[in-house]
Design a protein around this nucleic acid. Structure first.
Lengths: 108, 108
DNA sequence: TTCCGTTATTTTTTAGTGTATATAACGGTA
DNA sequence: TACCGTTATATACACTAAAAAATAACGGAA
């Protein structure tokens, strides 16, 4: 028996940040491309684009900046705000895992 | 912005206890019937039966006892162990809600 | 024996969600 | 201008998960 769970940050209309979005942002940050990140995630480009678009809409300042056309066809970079959001959520996530582990020990 | 989440107790093969199962058990306890509880939950009987069956399988001692046929067609009662499991999970749930509220306040 | 309402099980239908596919738009570079 | 690889967008398809529906099994009571 083990306590499991999931946690996320809810915005006005949709989810602002969650585990999937976190992993996606990290891969965008590494590759500089939504399409590349989507491949790594084994996720359709459309799905990845929707997640990114949703996050940007929920945030005052965009978490990523997307460029279409130009050198190399364009690309996507994670902004300072995006990196901060990542850090913030990771902290919440580790605390949540601690919470679950603690509750699991009490369980039996 | 608000921290949201869900939490449950995972057994060996499937979920042992969660919010849906908790509500279902409570309604079975009131009505003495899976089919009646399923109606209240606006859930198909099959789904309710599968949840109940799964819980019983995950537990050493059954959380409910089911009787098919007989007076009134049969029925289902929640055992002492079932009530204890309910109480245990409710405690975890309220602590989890506190956790989320606390994290939401820190959020900004 | 027949009736009743429940549990138990199988099959069919439906709804929703993600994927695949195709196409357009973009804008710097050669 | 033509090319390139990306972002952006629409449409059609596939698949899964849930619900709905239909049927069987059960066992006490009349």
């Amino acid at each position: 028996m083990k306590i499991c769970g999931s946690i996320w940050i809810e915005g006005k209309k949709t989810t602002y940040m969650g585990v999937g979005r976190m992993l996606l942002l990290e891969k965008i940050n590494k590759s500089g491309s939504i399409s590349e990140a989507a491949k790594k995630m084994k996720m359709s480009y459309k799905k990845a684009w929707e997640l990114v678009d949703g996050m940007n809409n929920e945030s005052k300042k965009p978490l990523v900046i997307r460029v279409s056309g130009g050198k190399g066809g364009g690309g996507t970079i994670v902004t300072k705000e995006g990196m901060a959001a990542l850090k913030q959520f990771k902290k919440i996530l580790t605390d949540f895992h601690k919470f679950c582990d603690k509750k699991t020990k009490v369980l039996k």
